[in-house]
């Protein structure tokens, strides 16, 4: 699956790091790093993280999205 975090919006509430720790990580006090292509088995956790983000900074590509070319 493909995701991204809008790091202009992100204010380091770090809810995502608790809900999907294999995908979103805090490095240092305020450095959020994330995996832009997590395994499909992570979808449920990533969707929960996206829903929990107070500033709605996490974008998740929908299932079956047109990913051509």
């Amino acid at each position: 699956m493909r995701i991204l975090v809008d790091l202009n919006k992100c204010q380091l509430y770090a809810q995502c790091c608790f809900l999907a720790p294999d995908v979103f990580k805090l490095e240092g006090e305020e450095v959020l790093v994330y995996h832009p292509a997590p395994d499909e088995t992570m979808r449920e956790r990533v969707l929960r993280a996206a829903a929990a983000c107070p500033v709605l900074a996490i974008v998740v590509e929908p299932v079956g999205a047109d990913s051509s070319p």
Binding site: L4, V33, P36, A37, D66
Partner: peptide
Amino acid sequence: APYDRPPLSKQVLSGWVRPQETFLPRLHP
């Protein structure tokens, strides 16, 4: 295909994310 550049100098160089894992999520067909 369109990919996201900011991770290239961070998650990709660190070795966590492969270069071809940076393709942008598609938001509309």
